[in-house]
C-alpha cells in the first residue's frame, strides 16, 4: 500500500487527522471541563468564567468531599449495587439467552418466551404500580430493591442470544457426541467462547447500575441509603421547577450553587467507570458486532 502515497492521499491523511483530532478533543472536553471546574476557585466557577482551563487553583472542593461521610457511604452502596446487580443479572441473562438462541425445533417454547421477553421490554405498568409492587415484596430500603427492581435488561439478553446463535455449531455438536449435557455445554463451552460479548454486557449492566439514580430516589426512604448518583443528583439539580421558592429554599439554593464542589463530585463519580472501561474495551468490537449483526 506504500505505493499510493500520492499528493491527494497525503492531503486526505492530513485533513482526516485534523477532523479526527477535533472530534477526539470534543469528546475529552466534558471531562476536562468538569475537572477544570472542580479545581477552580468557587467564585470564578459560579460566575461562569471557566471555559477552557481552571481559573485560580483550589483543592477546597476535594477536601470537602473527603470529609463528607455521606458521599463515601453512597459510594459504597453503589459498589455493592454494581457488583450484586451485574453478577446476578449476568447469570440470569446467560442462562436465559442460551435456550433462546436455540431454534424452535430444539426448544419448543422458544418463540413464546421470546415474545414475552420483547413484550416486557416495551410495556410497563407505570411508575406507581411498579412502586406498589416493590413495596409489597418488602424490598423498599434494601439493597435488593436497587439490584432487582430495575428488572432484567432485556436488550442485553438479545445481544447475548445473538452472539450464542452465531457461534460455530460444530463445537457444540462435538460436545454432544462426547455426552455433555446442556449445562456443561453452556458453562463449559458456550460461555468461554463468548467472553467478548459477556465483557460487553458486563460493562453495560455495570454502567447502568452505576449511573441510574431515579430508582434510588423512589425506592429509598432517605439519603443515607442512596446510591452515589442519586446522592449527587439531589445536590446538583434539586431545584423546584413548579413552585416559587420560599426564603429558606432560596437561601439554600444560593449556598448550594457551588459549581466547583459539584464538579468535583461528578468527577469522582465517573472515575471508576473510566478506570474499568479500558480493560474491557478490547472486547467491545467483537462483542457488539457478533451480538447485533449476523454475518
Amino acid at each position: 500500500m506504500v505505493q499510493n502515497k500520492t499528493l491527494g492521499s497525503r492531503i486526505f491523511d492530513i485533513v482526516n487527522t485534523i477532523i479526527l483530532t477535533i472530534l477526539t478533543l470534543s469528546c475529552l472536553y466534558p471531562l476536562w471541563y468538569t475537572f477544570s471546574l472542580s479545581i477552580s476557585v468557587k467564585s470564578a466557577a459560579n460566575a461562569g468564567l471557566v471555559t477552557f482551563y481552571p481559573i485560580g487553583f483550589s483543592l477546597a472542593s476535594y477536601r470537602e468531599i473527603m470529609s463528607d461521610i455521606k458521599f463515601f457511604n453512597s459510594f459504597w452502596i453503589s459498589i455493592q449495587r454494581v457488583v450484586l446487580g451485574t453478577g446476578l443479572s449476568l447469570i440470569a441473562m446467560i442462562m436465559m439467552a442460551y435456550p433462546l438462541s436455540k431454534s424452535k425445533q430444539e426448544f419448543k417454547a422458544r418463540d413464546i418466551f421470546m415474545w414475552i421477553v420483547i413484550f416486557c421490554m416495551l410495556f410497563n405498568g407505570g411508575l406507581i404500580p411498579w412502586y406498589l409492587t416493590v413495596k409489597s415484596y418488602h424490598l423498599l430500603d434494601t439493597i435488593w430493591a436497587l439490584v432487582l427492581a430495575g428488572g432484567l435488561p432485556v436488550f442485553n439478553v438479545i445481544l447475548l442470544m445473538n452472539f450464542f446463535r452465531n457461534l460455530p455449531a460444530d463445537i457444540e455438536e462435538a460436545a454432544v457426541i462426547d455426552g455433555a449435557g446442556p449445562w456443561r455445554i453452556l458453562f463449559g463451552i458456550v460461555v468461554p467462547c463468548s467472553l467478548p460479548v459477556i465483557a460487553t454486557v458486563t460493562l453495560f449492566t455495570g454502567v447502568y447500575h452505576w449511573n441510574e439514580f431515579f430508582n434510588g430516589l423512589i425506592l429509598m426512604s432517605d439519603a443515607s441509603k442512596y446510591p452515589l448518583q442519586t446522592y449527587i443528583q439531589q445536590l446538583v439539580v434539586s431545584i423546584p421547577s413548579d413552585t416559587t421558592l420560599t426564603p429558606d429554599q432560596y437561601k439554600r439554593l444560593s449556598e448550594l450553587s457551588n459549581k466547583s464542589l459539584n464538579a468535583a463530585k461528578v468527577f469522582i463519580a465517573i472515575t471508576p467507570v473510566l478506570i474499568v472501561y479500558p480493560f474491557l474495551q478490547k472486547y467491545f468490537v467483537t462483542g457488539i458486532m457478533l451480538g447485533a449483526v449476523k454475518e
Binding site: S89, I91, A92, M93, M95, M96, Y98, P99, L100, F113, I116, V117, C120, L148, G151, L152, V154, V157, P182, W183, L186
Partner: peptide
C-alpha cells in the same frame, strides 16, 4: 435455565 430470568421478569 429460563427459570431465574423469567421469574425476575
Amino acid at each position: 435455565m429460563m427459570l431465574p430470568g423469567m421469574l425476575w421478569l
